[in-house]
Design a protein around this nucleic acid. Structure first.
Lengths: 216, 216
DNA sequence: TTCACGATGTGAATCATTTCACAGGGGCAA
DNA sequence: TTGCCCCTGTGAAATGATTCACATCGTGAA
């Protein structure tokens, strides 16, 4: 059993570095120092270096890192995972937002189909993506060997639909419904919980304010 | 200086517990065991007990926790932070999705205004929330003493707008744009990075698949 | 050529979070 | 009333993540 699993925190940061390095590269810069990356991404230079250590990438002590090579190294590590096909379920406002975001601004990902059971949406192209009725789900998932799904359905439908997806062989779910989905160990479910984040933020700012009062 | 800061991880889970306990309560249940909460939220019973320990809540050894009291305790800790007024900037698809989500399904939060500079949106009510032109931002933030903002604008506008918000006294930002915002220490910025989460998910499922192959 | 500076790379320490392991307690059955 | 069982609460260990501190290296200036 290999032990070289990438820590999730590092993974997240690598994705950020990648995004950011592309931008910096587009601005014509060739090399970059760890402290520059750190500054742009809001962490420490040591942490950047440690992350790059994780993926076995080395810079030169005088010039820092060659952006082109570094980008390649990160991409190799991430293994172009984002190119996997994915589907979206639930073409409400949020679903639509993600669809248009995908196809208009970020043509990186490979979003192959959307599903909904609203007859007004079915068989139309929304945000550049064809919307199918839910009955087509089985067929399409199997035919296209889909492994990833984005769930933007109402909370009360989420678990049922997730079960169905898992049964059809989906291995990863990005869930926007504010419920904790029960999934087997073989499936990964990431939670995008807007309300939770908002409540957290509200608490943290309030708390910080109190601390500031206390200091006075 | 008090040291009883709630760990962020615990905070997140408390919010989940709260949500979940409300549901359970609505189903008529009166008491609950730590392992039941754990099962519903997908963590361990010890962790649940430790979290409740953090907020100084005690159950009884035979009957577990009284849901009503526990909910009250959590709410007291969270201090009804979610009732703070907030605004939303950028009434695109995503902004609209959040607006409707708020006002239709989750009337908990206090979203007082939306802003956009698109003349088609300005001065209309969208998702139950009045949409103002950006010129009104100053006035409204000051007048209503807004401390929280949701940023659903395009990436290239995000930092500029954030700067403006901070200048106007905003203390917490929930940012959906895929950029790392630079904010001073006095401001908290939470990142909701859909593309990042998706890429992470894609990587993790792929990796897990490889591990499974390796096992065979 | 030599020196000093400003990078990187990394062992070790620190800090944070989770899990283990078990003491303690209360109620139900006998 | 006694004993057992299943719960809670928590010190201590284990694990995970970040930061410190410093060895090392390569380049440019003198």
């Amino acid at each position: 059993m290999k032990k070289n699993q990438l820590p999730v925190k590092t993974l997240e940061r690598l994705i950020l570095y990648k995004r950011l390095l592309s931008e910096v590269q587009n601005r014509g810069q060739q090399t970059v120092y760890s402290h520059q990356i750190a500054q742009l991404v809001g962490n420490s230079a040591v942490q950047v270096r440690r992350d790059l250590m994780q993926i076995g990438f080395s810079g030169s002590s005088r010039n820092g890192y060659v952006i082109k090579d570094l980008l390649q190294a990160i991409e190799k590590t991430l293994n172009n995972a984002y190119q996997q096909k994915m589907i979206l379920l639930g073409v409400g406002n949020l679903g639509k937002a993600i669809l248009t975001y995908f196809t208009c601004q970020q043509p990186l990902f490979n979003l192959v189909a959307a599903f909904d059971n609203d007859p007004n949406k079915v068989n139309r192209v929304i945000g550049g993506c064809r919307c199918f009725p839910l009955e087509k789900l089985d067929e399409l998932v199997k035919q296209e060997q889909i492994k990833l799904a984005i769930l933007t359905v109402p909370a009360f439908e989420a678990q049922n639909l997730a079960n169905k997806l898992i049964y059809l062989g989906i291995k990863g779910i990005l869930n926007f419904a504010p419920v904790t989905l029960k999934v087997p160990d073989s499936v990964i479910c990431e939670q995008m919980d807007i309300m939770l984040q908002l409540e957290k933020l509200a608490f943290l700012t309030q708390q910080k304010d109190e601390v500031n009062y206390a200091k006075v």
